[in-house]
Design a protein around this nucleic acid. Sequence first.
DNA 1: GTCTATAATCAGATAGAC
DNA 2: GTCTATCTGATTATAGAC
Lengths: 205, 205
Amino acid sequence: MKSSPGAKISFKAQMLQAREDAIIRVVNHLLAEKGFDAMTVDEVAANVGIAKASLYKHFPSKEDLAAAAMVRVMRHAQTYLEGIAEETPSLEKLRQVVRWTMELKLAGEMPSLPSQNSSLRATLISNQDYMNGLIEVSDRLGGWIEAAQAQGSINPQLPAIAILYTLYARACDPVLEFLKMGAQHTDAQIVDFVLSTCFDGLNAR
Amino acid sequence: MKSSPGAKISFKAQMLQAREDAIIRVVNHLLAEKGFDAMTVDEVAANVGIAKASLYKHFPSKEDLAAAAMVRVMRHAQTYLEGIAEETPSLEKLRQVVRWTMELKLAGEMPSLPSQNSSLRATLISNQDYMNGLIEVSDRLGGWIEAAQAQGSINPQLPAIAILYTLYARACDPVLEFLKMGAQHTDAQIVDFVLSTCFDGLNAR
DNA sequence: GTCTATAATCAGATAGAC
DNA sequence: GTCTATCTGATTATAGAC
């Protein structure tokens, strides 16, 4: 049955949506905490509070669960990017994005996927929502990178793609968790250190 | 039977050693190619050309296989470190080590382990050869880091431990493989890019 | 020590009732 | 859609002959 006039969403559809959101939040959390391989579908089901078979009614595979979490992160990122003031200098925009990314990671909300797993890779690539989000985010960051290079605030010798990857890599930088394990510094300090190494480099200035 | 006078190693022991070296080389290669989780013991046995049960006579578990590979890498690193000329400036020593590390990775010889797996972590920590190697390497690098900071060639604002982790992280930097996948640059160029972002940072100088 | 064969376990996915 | 119960395949590890 289609929704009634006024484009109202049926109660049933709302419940469905809410449940899937709950699932994705759990998946996101588990992916951040233990990674794709260590996360089990049983665990996801248990944390959501439903049976595993029910999970498979919503998502056809473990890979699709992870993909859904990545789509969510992409949407989240797009929202953040759109919130950055237009007049902010390009370099500062990039710094803010990296900072946001690392804070997400330290908060245990950044899902981490193995870059080698091929079945997962295939699922992600064939996921239009994910790919669109990824491309849009990359385009926007790419624009900022080129602008920053043009105005001489970012090293123009480096290919823009190398810079883009370097920024993305902060989302899975093991330095953050190692420093956190050491328990010698606050989260804010850790972010500042990595932000410094990322943009200023290790060399003295 | 003990070895005969002259401290000669028995033929049998030599064969054993050679076989274990072959195993570790295979493990090292597979760990570099697919990572610990994706590597199966069957695969290792097949690549070595022996039965799986024979493998387990040499190493008691999959974790111990990985640990043996890490011990090998540590030894390799120590040899490299010892080969660096004493009079080389500290900063340059560090740059050389990072370069060597990344070249090893691009050559498919740098094993990569998941940082979350707890059983693997336990095996590594209880492996004296590995821990000794790790500590010795860290001590040496730590000395160079502090020297470089003292003479003002590396940012003295950063904790030495953060710098050490940042250097170690180059051994599992996804930027290298992503750039390699793009096939737009030679390995030498890729190394130079990442070396530049690591020491000079993204900012223009 | 090496092998073949097999155990034991775990995890992704599904059947079928309600 | 949700559940319980089960299937299936992959993978670590071992038994036991030679």
